[in-house]
């Protein structure tokens, strides 16, 4: 096996490829470093993001004054959900404190092995925060962690994502810089751009194949 490594590296090193100057110093800088007047303001970012997300059947709501909790309180029972999953953090606490008794609320505070079948079979909705979003592609940025583990935004049939409007950036490249992505290297990082979908049968678009069938984004403005 170590032979394999040595042999491969030796073969790769035996042809020294010289690049033309352009390729050697290439970067996507000229695409990323746009002129300052082409940056979007917050309103434009929200518009682009919303438009791109709605194009792939994401439900987007703009809530003023951080009303996301009221929205959840009002909408979740109406939509017939029974079991809601929240993170082991302040956001989770706020949801738990404000919900009616008709909803069962679980907190993701155990190792998955202890409750895998419950997560896969019973939970209707997962509510997570986001780190931000990319307006250009209509993508939410998530770095799942101890408080909001990876399966929260994946296994429940509905994913509700909370997005602070001030955390929207124009492009993925800007997000990498702004979030100091290289140095932080999260265990898992995700761009989520809509509900799960497939076109594998006759290129006919169908939603909700393996991941959430519905993605609901609540955008709130909170300084």
């Amino acid at each position: 096996m170590n032979d394999a490594r040595a042999n491969i590296l030796r073969r790769l090193r035996s042809n020294n490829i010289t690049l033309e100057n352009d390729a050697a110093h290439s970067s996507t800088a000229s695409l990323a470093n746009r002129p300052i007047d082409s940056y979007w303001n917050k309103q434009q970012q929200i518009e682009h993001l919303t438009q791109n997300m709605q194009a792939v059947r994401t439900e987007v709501h703009h809530l003023s004054n951080g009303d996301w909790l009221d929205w959840l309180k009002r909408e979740l029972p109406v939509r017939g959900f029974k079991q809601v999953l929240v993170g082991d953090n302040e956001t989770g606490n706020r949801v738990i404190q404000s919900m009616e008794d008709s909803l069962k609320i679980s907190r993701y505070d155990r190792q998955i092995e202890n409750w895998k079948s419950e997560l896969f079979q019973d939970v209707d909705v997962g509510i997570t925060t986001t780190l931000g979003a990319v307006a250009e592609t209509g993508s939410l940025i998530l770095w799942p962690d101890k408080a909001e583990p990876r399966l929260m935004s994946l296994v429940p049939p509905v994913h509700v994502a909370l997005l602070n409007a001030n955390h929207i950036v124009d492009t993925f490249s800007e997000a990498i810089t702004k979030l100091n992505w290289v140095d932080k290297t999260p265990t898992n990082a995700l761009l989520i751009s809509g509900p799960s979908k497939t076109s594998d049968i006759e290129q006919t678009l169908a939603f909700g194949i393996h991941g959430p069938r519905q993605l609901i984004v609540l955008i709130f403005d909170h300084k």
Partner: peptide, 15 residues
């Protein structure tokens, strides 16, 4: 829909 970036296995405390 998904761009999934994996850098580490489950870390201590992750669930």
């Amino acid at each position: 829909t998904y761009f999934n970036m994996i850098s580490k296995p489950r870390q201590p405390g992750e669930k």
